[in-house]
Design a binder for these strands. Structure first.
Length: 271
DNA sequence: TCCTTATGTACAA
DNA sequence: TGTACCTAAGGAC
């Protein structure tokens, strides 16, 4: 399940499994059959991620554009590949590996200009070396919108999802309802650097861990614990449970159709 | 077996 | 703001 770290990891994994070698492409589910037929037998030449968008490059200027949405899943396996289930939107198969894509919001063949248009409407991605954090701050610092909503706005910053949003605000003690224009340059620098580090670790481990070493259950003398989404976190999906640091009850509320989580004691109005 | 939920986004009203 | 879309897992019956 996908925030930006998942997509960057997938870009690497697709490249490792297939890059430079011809692939067999198919769409058992049917919606990508025409494009799959067009690509079969051509090599995957490169892969790229920007925020939650994945691009698989074929030939000179053709790309498969994938967006997993909320439900999309990718599974890799070795050969021989088992028969695909009928929900597989796209299977790529090579000499040594196959990969199945299910449930994406987007899986489409696009041109280089179409790909560029997607980059153009996305904000900077903390996982991309070309990212400019100040471009994001210019939008944040001019906005009356809450910082929690801004962090989820892909035009402002690309790749942050509901988990990193909740966790990075907790780690910096920032009230999620503070308006963007109240976030100081210093705070934004710290948030950006932290996201870069957390998400890079997310790419390496293929999961989201945000708890600092000194706050792990082991360090705090508590029983070991992994949250049910697969990583260790402070507040995400911990509504009505005690804050790991102060014991206050973690709160939840709807914000822009998503669930927000925060500790009202650790995350105060200012600073 | 049904219902809810989920790390997302786009579009209509 | 609400709704539609894509899938699968877990819990309530």
């Amino acid at each position: 399940m996908p925030e930006g770290h998942t997509i960057h990891r997938l870009a690497k994994d697709y490249a490792t499994a297939f890059a430079g070698r011809p692939v067999h492409a198919s769409s058992p589910q049917g919606k990508f059959s025409d494009a799959a037929a067009l690509l079969t037998g051509t090599p995957l030449t490169r892969t790229e991620a920007h925020g939650k968008h994945l691009f698989l490059g074929f030939r000179d200027a053709e790309w498969i554009h994938i967006h997993l949405g909320l439900f999309g899943k990718v599974t890799f396996g070795g050969t021989p590949a088992p028969p695909p289930t009928d929900t597989v939107r796209l299977r790529l198969a090579g000499d040594t590996a196959y990969v199945d894509l299910r449930g994406p919001t987007t899986c489409a063949l696009i041109t280089e200009p179409e790909k560029q248009a997607i980059h153009d409407r996305l904000g900077p991605d903390p996982l991309r070396p070309d990212a400019d954090p100040q471009a994001a701050y210019r939008r944040v610092s001019r906005s009356r919108t809450t910082v929690a909503a801004l962090l989820m706005d892909q035009k402002v910053i690309a790749g942050v999802g509901n988990v990193y949003r909740a966790e990075v605000l907790f780690r910096h003690g920032i009230d999620p309802y503070r308006p963007g224009r109240d976030i100081t340059p210093t705070e934004w620098d710290a948030i950006w650097r932290d996201l870069t580090e957390l998400m890079s670790e997310g790419v390496r481990n293929n999961r989201i861990d945000t708890v600092r070493p000194e706050h792990t259950p082991e360090a705090m003398g508590r029983p070991p614990r992994v949250d049910d989404h697969g990583g260790e976190v402070y507040v995400y999906r911990r509504a009505d449970q005690p804050c790991h640091l102060c014991g206050e009850t973690v709160r939840t509320a709807g914000l822009a159709a998503r669930n927000l989580f925060w500790c009202p004691s650790c995350q105060r109005k200012q600073d």
